Computed example of a mutant assay.
Amino acid sequence: EYAIHFQMQMGKHKYRHLIGSPLYLKQVLQNIGGNAVKYNRAGGAVTFASEDVAYSDGRAVIKFTCTDTGRGMSREFLVHAFEPFSQENTDARTTFTGTGLGLAITKQMVELMEGTISLKSEQNVGTTISVTIPFRIDVDYTEPQEDAKPADAASLEGVHVLLVEDNELNMEIAEFLLKKAGITVTTAYNGQEAVDVFRTKAAGTFDVILMDVMMPVMDGLTAAREIHATNRVDAAEIPIFAMTANAFYDDVRQSKEAGMVEHLSKPIQEQELLDAIRRHVKR
């Protein structure tokens, strides 16, 4: 929409299989990358890079760097950038609809992973954020045999999914991935619509429900509870997956408490999605 050029510069990492927190790492990189786009300028650029910086005591230390050509920050504000609710411009909340918590939360997650985060910025020039995190090297990993077949690669042809998503682009992408696998898709654009669709269809119509969490009219957690509470034979057992950009422990806990059996982080990964459906669909 803003013609921002996004470039990846992935280093040649010595170790490809590491042990750490996928949820925290994904959230950290999404927060940083999201800000780089959000506070950029039309026709600007974002460059994301990763490189190994050290190996010691069974650990690989990796540095992730995100550079943008956005509005940047003043020297005076840099010392406050990681403080909660910090936003330099008085119009930031109205223009960019943020809370000022992004960098503060990102710093907390980086520190929980025993890493460090730093930034350099210049007003009207851009910002560079660097995150360095140590990961344990997975010494037990062995390369699979070439003739090994994917586990449980059962066909999903004929599976019927109720896809609930309020964002049109996310809906289009998820629907494409599902249909490519032979899955029949019925769509709903908010939680209330999902509840209505489920209740009006015959019992057993849907094998799985993919539910966005943050939606207008009715959120995904409430919709999941409403569906499970429906007085129908398939209501209590229908597998409902949460789809959300929020990967914090508390978000996972809330989705489980609402009766959701999977927590899929956005952007949705095709193989992760299809494998999750296979786990819960009895053919």
Rank of each mutant, 00 (worst) to 15 (best):
H5L: 12
Q7N: 07
G20P: 02
S21E: 03
S21L: 09
L23W: 15
Y24N: 14
L29C: 12
L29P: 13
Q30R: 13
N31I: 14
G33Y: 11
G34S: 06
A36V: 11
V37L: 12
N40R: 02
R41V: 13
G43H: 10
G43W: 00
G44V: 00
S50P: 13
E51G: 12
V53I: 12
A54W: 02
A54H: 04
I62R: 10
F64D: 11
C66V: 08
C66W: 01
C66A: 12
D68H: 08
T69F: 03
T69D: 05
G70Y: 05
R71I: 15
M73V: 11
R75G: 06
R75E: 15
E76A: 05
F77A: 08
F77S: 07
L78M: 13
L78T: 00
A81D: 05
F82Y: 10
E83W: 06
F85I: 09
S86L: 08
Q87N: 13
Q87W: 04
D91N: 14
A92G: 00
A92W: 03
R93G: 12
T95K: 13
L101S: 12
I105F: 10
I105P: 01
K107Y: 04
Q108V: 07
E111K: 11
G115I: 01
L119D: 02
K120C: 07
Q123N: 14
T127R: 10
T128Q: 05
T128P: 02
I129Y: 03
V131Q: 09
T132M: 05
I133Q: 02
R136G: 13
I137W: 00
I137S: 11
V139F: 09
T142K: 14
E146H: 08
A151R: 13
D152I: 10
S155L: 03
V159W: 00
V159P: 00
V164G: 04
E165Q: 09
E168L: 06
N170E: 10
N170H: 08
N170F: 01
E172V: 09
E172P: 00
I173H: 08
A174F: 00
E175D: 09
L177H: 11
A181W: 02
V185I: 01
V185D: 03
V185L: 01
T186D: 13
Y189P: 15
E193S: 06
V195A: 08
D196R: 02
D196G: 06
R199G: 09
F206T: 05
V208F: 05
D212C: 10
D212L: 14
G220T: 11
L221F: 15
T222M: 15
A224T: 13
R225H: 14
H228L: 10
V233L: 12
D234E: 10
D234L: 14
D234K: 02
A235Q: 07
A236V: 13
P239K: 06
T244L: 11
F248M: 14
F248K: 12
D250Y: 07
V252Q: 07
Q254D: 14
E257K: 03
E257P: 01
G259Y: 00
K266N: 03
P267T: 12
I268S: 00
Q271A: 14
Q271G: 05
Q271W: 05
E272K: 10
L273R: 02
D275L: 00
A276L: 01
I277E: 04
R279F: 08
K282A: 04
K282E: 01
